[in-house]
Design a binder for these strands. Structure first.
Length: 273
DNA sequence: CCAGTATCCTGCAGGC
DNA sequence: TGCCTGCAGGATACTG
């Protein structure tokens, strides 16, 4: 369940620990991810390439290389990048192995295979179907001004709209729940029935919760052996997500759960209207 | 275009 | 102990 903060944490870890390294060896399996992973294409493109500063777009990682192209990575539900000091026991569901010039090994592991590893030749990034229609970045300072316009004409529940990557890129189920609690908005409320001021407020608290989570992830980044994000997620204080029947932190009313957009939705029936 | 649902996949928890 | 069921959910194909 890596969402924007977890992906940003991984991005920073890559920047700190992998940037500037050259890929000496590549091993890949032709596994069916969101798109088929193409070992030939990856090996041709990446072997000998130097990895540059990684970028993030929504939940996607983009690693530019010295030879011009870009490695596109999405962690899906269960994807992880694992950096180890040497060739050590390979985790199950390892789909890609990059042997680096400092002797370390970077692995992409994804049991559920909802993720994506795809090589982009120069120029392909602008056309890639996963990237081309992505919406605004939630950390964009303009989002509070932008969000009312994006939501105003929509009749779907606000929770579903927050999860729509074509409107806002990077929000997943956990932080959608948390932001709606902070903004005191009922997740089921139709987008067009929310006042513009409340939507601007939602954008602000969304940014706050994402930044807190990034900061929490950052605290776990220091001695990175693996680029794991679990610790960061635990470090953020979740107020409603996963807290069925527990007291609302604001009013002590038991937290409820319902299904929305096919996802578990946690909310306070008293605070959120 | 829009909204809602099914689908992909594995691991794990809970019931019996 | 083991088998079954359902849930977890990011993105997208499909339906109405």
């Amino acid at each position: 369940m890596p969402e924007l903060p977890e992906v940003e944490t991984v991005r920073r870890a890559l920047e700190a620990h992998v940037r500037g390294r050259r890929v000496m060896r590549l091993e890949a399996r032709p596994v069916q991810l969101r798109r088929p992973l193409d070992p030939e294409r990856l090996a041709t493109a990446l072997t000998g390439a130097r990895l540059q500063t990684p970028r993030r777009r929504g939940k996607h990682l983009l690693v530019d290389t010295s030879n011009g192209g870009t490695l596109l990575v999405h962690l899906g539900m269960t994807g992880r990048l694992i950096l180890t000091d040497a060739a050590r026991d390979e985790p199950r569901h390892t789909h890609l192995v990059l042997g680096l010039d400092d002797g370390r090994v970077l692995r992409y592991v994804d049991p559920r295979r909802f993720g994506l590893v795809h090589w982009l030749e120069p120029g392909e990034e602008a056309l890639d179907p996963s990237l081309v229609r992505l919406g605004s970045e939630p950390l964009d300072p303009d989002l509070p001004a932008l969000l009312p316009g994006l939501i105003r004409s929509r009749r779907a529940p606000i929770k579903s709209l927050l999860l729509d990557q074509h409107l806002i890129a990077g929000v997943g189920n956990i932080y959608a729940n948390e932001a709606l609690w902070r903004a005191r908005i009922d997740p089921a409320r139709a987008g067009h029935r929310i006042a513009p001021r409340r939507l601007a407020r939602l954008a602000t608290v969304l940014k706050e919760v994402l930044e807190e989570a990034i900061a929490a992830g950052g605290t776990t980044i220091r001695d990175f052996a693996s680029l794991d994000t679990e610790a960061g997620l635990f470090a953020v204080k979740l107020r409603v997500y996963g807290r069925l029947d527990e007291p609302c932190p604001a009013c002590a009313t038991p937290i409820r759960r319902r299904m929305l957009a096919g996802r578990s939705t946690f909310f306070c029936p008293r605070c959120q209207r």
